[in-house]
Amino acid sequence: MSSAGKASEQATTEKVRHEWPLYEVFVRSKRGLNHVHVGSLHAADDEMALRHARDLYTRRNEGVSIWVVKAEHIAASSPDEKDPFFAPSADKVYRHPTFYDIPENVPHM
């Protein structure tokens, strides 16, 4: 292949890479459960992302429903526990059932 041909091929690869966006994949493993993040993949559009997600992440009945979301559309907080975003939940202990003392003789509580 000529060097010009090679250069144009590389440019095409470059372009394709940017045009197949990254999708995050979420799978509901069975009815009654939430969709859970399982990984990511690249696809040209939403429909292809769903098809690929089906083949990649549910080859063994791992799911009954799939969501795909372009990664760029996800807003995320830092998962770092130092981040103040999650701080309020640690000091509101009364949100947890174990905060309340219930006598032993009260059933089903």
Binding site: T12, W20, A44, D45
Partner: peptide, 16 residues
Amino acid sequence: GAWVREAAAAYARKQR
């Protein structure tokens, strides 16, 4: 496989 990747990207662009 390059032409498949390019065709899929072109199709997605057209749809968009």
